[in-house]
Design a binder for these strands. Structure first.
Length: 555
DNA sequence: GGACCTTTGAAGGGG
DNA sequence: CCCCTTCAAAGGTCC
């Protein structure tokens, strides 16, 4: 039982949770949230304006069919990108012309919605509310299997702060949001606070008792919050793992059960859980039975793991090839951005009626970069914990194990590069995301919402890995979004500083002292200055050089 | 039906 | 140690 007691739990994040994350700054955070939301909208609007002003021929981006068309369309709009960079304080991002159209259509649809609901974009759903990562009963590495509970970060204010949170007037827009995507999938059960990395522990045929409908609140039909004693036995682990491994988030559970309101519990249910801890109407009304009780078609990546696949990780190492085919597919743990994306997707979709994931992901990517470092830190921490849990549950698993399990990797054979095709979809895409005035003003090093781009001296960094000393500035890294990232496969053209810890791998958490990615250097480009002419520093200048890679042929 | 698109981050192999 | 590739989620789109 490596980490059941004492120091074992430390590296699982026992200490960092004790650090008050933002009790004091909560109000400030709320303000900043609103500012961020306003800025977000303004940003997009500004982008729209700029787009219309600078790129009158970008209508192709607004086509109903935004799918990239080969050749001319992509190329033409992409070639305009340099002009985008001019006259604006610009942040270059990876965004195809197609995506720009998506963003704008998002804007177009989002703005009126915001008026209707009075609050869309207003509250970043989980700013300040890291969610409890709670993989679903079936398989955390199956679609929809992970559920995340937005929670106050320290989770130690059992006294009712959580309740206050729950009752906090969040976003009216979401409260009245009728967009179905925000609702949990029908097969999700409200009470899924089980961290199950092995999908076999909780066979659909044998749901845990506390998941049965009889735990529903008789008044509301909402599943009541089970007592801690009801929950803990259902920790996810495989038979061998149970009792041996303390879930990295195990520290959360007691608090969860003590402080989380039923509505919060409901939030556990869905991959699309309401960010506002409010159960979807359907759920509130019906109580909802657990999917595993009603849906025999839970997608499981294991074909035959009712009970015997729990040791799949170990089986992976020893199973003969034939059995290996039957092994469950152990998915990679989600990284911080994936966690963020998973949380925010529904909201973005709800806000903009856009469903094309490619476009949504671009928006999410942009929002991700607009998050403060503190906000991102929460996701990094969650990702770190998930990786820890994953590594504990599947000690022998390697990301390499999943290689080749997808049919074919896209862009395996890149088309031969031609100068006129330099922005072809298969090669590189350059996009300039415009900064709104507010965002431009964020060039100020003191701007909290641009902290990601700012000097990294924020105390919150220690939260991500309290066991480790607060990362130095040089140790913190954020993948610099100021990137043309045309195609990493073609060539890395990031402006990011070296992201690796001095003596560790690429993971910012792999090194005890580097709990967070390194901060982004402030790379606000002067207006009117062509982006690729900006040399931030000698080091960055070197990194900036590859910007021209956008026009370089791929080798 | 499955690949593709799109995002960022993590991981691992190769040089 | 750096570079590169692959995969993770997601859902519309295309073949």
């Amino acid at each position: 039982m490596p980490q059941l007691n004492g120091g074992g739990g430390d590296d699982l994040g026992a200490n960092d949770e004790l650090i008050s994350f933002k009790d004091e700054g909560e109000q400030e955070e709320k303000i900043s949230e609103n500012v961020s939301a306003e800025r977000d909208l303004a940003d997009v609007k500004s982008s729209l304006v700029n787009e219309s002003e600078n790129n009158s021929s970008s209508s192709d981006c607004e086509q109903t069919d935004r799918r990239p068309q080969p050749g001319a369309q992509r190329g033409s709009s992409a070639r305009q990108s340099p002009s985008f960079a001019e006259g604006t304080s610009s942040r270059v991002c990876v965004m195809s012309s197609v995506a720009r159209g998506c963003v704008y259509s998002v804007l177009l649809s989002a703005a009126p919605r915001r008026q209707q609901h009075g609050g869309l974009f207003k509250t970043p759903p989980y700013a300040g509310y890291p969610f409890l990562m709670i993989p679903d009963l079936t398989n955390p590495y199956s679609p929809g299997a992970r559920t995340y509970l937005p929670m106050k970060w320290p989770l130690l204010d059992i006294s009712g702060a959580a309740a206050l949170k729950d009752s906090r007037p969040t976003t009216p827009g979401h409260a009245s949001n009728k967009v179905p995507v925000v609702q949990p999938p029908p097969h999700m059960h409200p009470l899924t606070p089980l961290i199950t990395y092995s999908n076999d522990r909780f066979s659909p045929r044998a749901p845990p008792a506390h998941l049965s409908p009889d735990v529903l609140d008789p008044k509301t039909g909402i599943p009541r919050t089970p007592h801690a004693s009801e929950l803990t036995p259902y920790y996810p682990l495989s038979p061998g793992a149970v009792g041996q491994i303390t879930h990295p988030l195990g520290w959360l559970v007691p608090h969860l059960t003590l402080s989380v309101s039923p509505t919060v519990s409901l939030s556990l249910v869905s991959g699309h859980f309401s960010p506002h801890m409010t159960p979807p109407p359907a759920l509130r009304q019906t109580g909802h039975t657990h999917p595993v009780l009603t849906s025999p078609s839970i997608k499981q990546e294991t074909s035959n793991n009712d009970d015997g696949a729990s040791d799949s990780a170990h089986a992976n190492a020893t199973a003969p090839p034939k059995e290996a085919e039957l092994k469950p597919h152990i998915k990679k743990p989600l990284n911080a951005f994936m966690l963020y994306m998973k949380e925010m997707r529904a909201k973005v979709v709800a806000e903009c009626t856009l469903k094309e994931s490619a476009a949504i992901n671009q928006i999410l990517g942009r929002r991700w970069h607009s998050l403060s470092r503190e906000e991102q830190a929460k996701y990094y921490e969650l990702a770190r914990k998930e990786r820890q849990l994953h590594s504990q549950l599947y000690p022998g698993w390697s990301a390499r194990d999943n290689y080749g399990k997808r049919k074919k990797r896209k862009r395996e054979n890149k088309p031969e590069f031609k100068p006129e095709d330099k922005f072809s979809p298969q090669t590189k895409k350059l996009c300039v995301a415009y900064l709104s005035p507010a965002e431009t003003a964020c060039g100020s090093p003191t701007s909290s919402h641009c902290s990601m781009l700012d000097s990294p001296d924020t105390p919150s960094v220690a939260l991500a890995s309290p066991a480790a000393p607060a990362p130095t500035h040089s140790e913190q890294a954020q993948p610099l979004s100021l990137t043309t990232k045309p195609d990493s496969r073609v060539q890395h053209a990031h402006f990011a500083l070296p992201t690796k810890a001095s003596s560790s791998g690429s993971s910012p958490y792999s090194q005890p002292g580097s709990s967070l990615p390194r901060p982004l250097p402030l790379l606000t480009l002067p207006a009117g200055l062509p982006f690729n002419h900006v040399a931030v520093s000698s080091q960055h200048a070197v990194q900036l050089q590859p910007l021209s890679l956008v026009t370089k042929p791929a080798d």
